[in-house]
Each structure stands twice: as structure tokens, then as C-alpha cells.
Design a binder for these strands. Sequence first.
RNA 1: GGUCGGAUGGCCGAGUGGCUAGGCUCAGCUCUGCAAAAGCUGCUACAGCGGUUCGAAUCCGCUUUCGACCUCCA
Length: 498
Amino acid sequence: MSELHFYNSYTRQKEKFEPLTPGYAGLYVCGPTVSGESHLGHARPYITFDVVQRYLKHLGYKVRYVRNITDAGHFEEEGREAIDKVGEKAKLEKLEPMEMVHKYTSLFHYGMRLFNNDEPSIEPTATGHIIEQITMIETIIDKGYAYEVNGSVYFDVKKYAEKYPYGKLSGRILDDLLETTRELDGQDEKRNKVDFALWKKAPAEHIQHWNSPWGEGFPGWHIECSAMSSKYLGETFDIHGGGMDLLFPHHESEIAQSTIVHGHPPVRYWMHNNMITINGKKMGKSYNNVIKLSELFSGNHPILEQPYHPMVVRFYILQTHYRSTLDFSNEALQASEKAFRRLWEAYEILQKITHPGNADAANAELDKQVTNWCNEFEEFMNDDFNTAKVIANMFELAPVINGIKGGQVAANAISAGTFELLKRTFKTYLEEILGMQPLAAQQSGSKLDSVLSLLIEIRKDAKKRKDFATSDQIRNKLAEAGVMLKDEKDGSVSYTIE
RNA sequence: GGUCGGAUGGCCGAGUGGCUAGGCUCAGCUCUGCAAAAGCUGCUACAGCGGUUCGAAUCCGCUUUCGACCUCCA
């Protein structure tokens, strides 16, 4: 029996997972900035860490999964100005931050539900934790690692680096960073270019601002995660996850802030998922190459050849290891759709077929192989959450299942015990751990079902009379309407609805 | 420019010192009134050049090339 190991970005190696408190696991994942609609790239971390969270629960841990909503900062929405430069617009014409934040938060939650992601245990908002953030900043100032200039507060990275390993997580070298020639906002206020903002003074016309010891302003980007993670998971917690693009400066800054406030690093295991690319380039708003989730699901985007079901997208993402880049293409999504349909069908067949009950396997070799494939599921997940390999094994098992149904494999080939193992393991991993659901709910017993049963009966009669014109017409017309009929080996007929 | 990470069969993608995943596509076969589905079979790849080794896609070096981060970013 193996134990859970996964790659820790901080130490750059796979490590055995040992929670801080036995039996409990704390997980923090950087959530969305709700100033715009989520796109395909955003789907990856939330699906990845949903599976992480599901697997931890499967292993018996009580999991507290915290994923924040970033709803504070310097916001703009397309077509509407965040800063009211004119200053004369009517109230309802101006961008109301709360309105925008509410809209995109709802949209985000909708997407998460379609992906069948479990809800986090706590989903704290940045605006709901302004006081916690201010308190942290005050502590950092008191300890001498931050300074105020003109109503803004900056973290003194150079001083921090004298005592602590700044740059360890992201592989940065401070001297290199000091030579950066980038022009950034507020650069002249900082003691060093590498310093980052803890609190930013808000210009009078800025839409979001709060009162603070340093005047009206808003919190820096990094401090919210430090404040909320420590509040809900403790000064030290188990796992912090997010996209690789957050390694620097976001997560590096989180470590620095928390280390000063609490006297030690905040996180034991850092996990980072890789990016989704399109034509080899990262999907991101700065590249102008995003496919929003609503576009993906509706197919309403120039490069999409068809709509893609959320479960197809989830499957496509889980077919690749989370630390590899994943390149988007219609071809790849379509391959995933076909593969998933086939796999799910085999899974449904498995739940329906019965086993003759023989305690000994007629085909010892196959029996052993099936047992092995099933047992490997856990082994693969324990090795850095290798969902790709889990799925590969499911496809090894699918022909066995289909073969039993189709008669190519004898029903007694595997033992009753192995059959039960197969049935149980498949369900656990496909539904509970990978979190997959059927593309369309079958509605047996519904009115449509009665109608289809009637048509199927008529077609059966026609076939008996060798009236193939009629039987084929029924089949073809139903296919046009999106109902696929399938003549089974035993003479029965089943259908699937597109 | 600095740091880091990739280059795998027609396509997507695991893997990692010997046993050469998996999916999709394609071809053939079985079953079938026909079709679909399903099953079976075939397609043997690891950017290039050196090196280490009995043995390398897997380790080391160099080259070519792509990308990520260094700025908001999942």
C-alpha cells in the first residue's frame, strides 16, 4: 500500500504528504479575480485542485478547502471606466464595483457547478477582510519590514532578503531583480524596485477605497491571500495551490509577508498547475487569446468548431498531468469527447451487468490483470495525482467490460470478488475522485421514454416482417432528431440522446 | 538580457536506465438484414550530435528549437 506523494514546488521534488494535524488537511487555492469572465485557462486549477481535494477526502482526511474571491483592487470592466475621469456621470452610468463583482462571481460559480467542482469549505472575499489585511500590514511596519510613503505602504524586500531566503520558491535572484529596468507605477516611491505594495493610496476618483491608518486606499494584491489563508487555515498550513504564473511575484510575496508577521513560512507544500496553451502560447488576457467558459460551452467563438460539454473539458484536462502544459485544439477536445463517451458507456454497462458468482476465475491471467489495473488506481493517484494514468487504466478495463457484455469475454472469466472490486473501484475513481458525470441524464420512465419505447416496438415488428425500409426510416429519423438507436446482441434495443 | 521548463508515432498525450501507457485518427477482420456500437488485429515514436552504460526515449554535455516567469495573469 503506497502513500500519497506529490511535487512540492518549494523544494522542487516529490515529497510524502504529512499533514500538520493528523487526519486533517488544509488547502488554500488562489481564486478568481472577479472583474471579468473566467476562461478555459482558469478552469485548469479549479478542476485540478478539486480532484486534489476529492482525493484527500477519499484518503480519509477531513479537508478544509479555502478558495478566495479577489474582489478588491484596481478594477476596470470592458466598456466602462473604473475611474470616473469626467466626474460628472450620473450614478447609474458609473461602474459600480459591487455590481460588477457580483455579476462575475455568479458567473464563476455557475461555471464551477457545470464542471462538477465541489464547493470550497470557505470562499472568503478580499473586501470582506480589509481589517485583517490592515492589521497584517501594521504588524509588518512594526517589525520594520515595511514603510509608508505618501499614503502607500511598501514591503522592504531588500531588508527581508538579508535574513530570509527571498526568491527560493520562484528561483529568483535578488540582484537580478534589482537590475530590472521595468517602469512600474509608484516606482519612484519605493526604496528599491523589488519592493511591492501592501497598501496603495487611492486617487480621489478611484472607485474602490477604504479608510486606513495611511489614509484612503486599497490593499495590495498579495496581502489578501496571506490574511485569509492564515485566518482560516492557521499561521502554518498544509497545501497552497495555484497556477504556475502566480509563483512570482504573488506567492513569493505571500511567503515574505507571512514570514515577517508569523515568524515562519506559511506553507508546507506548494502546488502549481501548468498553463493551458493555444497554438503553443499561454492562454491569457494579455495575449488576447482567451476562450471564455460560456463561449466554450456554447461553441460561440471563431476558433471553436463546436460546443464542448463541461464534462468533456474536465475529462480533457484530467487526461493530462497537471504539471504539463496542455495545448488547446478542436481536434484534442473532439478526441476527448469521443473517448469520454466510450468510457462512460462502458462504466454504465459495468453497473448493469451481473456476475455468475463463481469464486474462482476461469481466466486466471485476466483476473490477475484486472485486479492489478484496479489496484494501480490508488498507486497512480498517490504518485503526484496522476489522473492521466488512472484514465489510461480505465481504458484498459473498458474492453473487458464491453467484452463481458458482448460475449467476447466469458462472464466467469474473472471471479466474483474481482468483479466487485472492478465495479467498486471504477465508481469510486470515475465519479467520486475524478468527479465525472454523464453528458446527458438518461430519463427512463419519462414521457419521452414511453414514446421511444413505442417506436422501438414498431421497428421491431417491421424488422420481423423484414420490412427494413420502415425499420431504417425509424432509426434514421430518430438519429436526425438526436436519438441514436442501438441493436443489442440479445435482441433488445437501447438508445442514447445527444 | 536573467531564471526556469519543454521538444515523444498522423494528432493529443503518459512515462522514465532494460518488460517499448492510453486516447483519437486510419486500415483490415468478427458480429450484424444493413448501419451504429462493441470486440480483435495492424500502424513501434521518443528534436539533432556526442558521451556514460552490457543496455538510454529515460543519465551527462553541446546544438537547434518552443515556451513560461521577470508586468495584471490560473
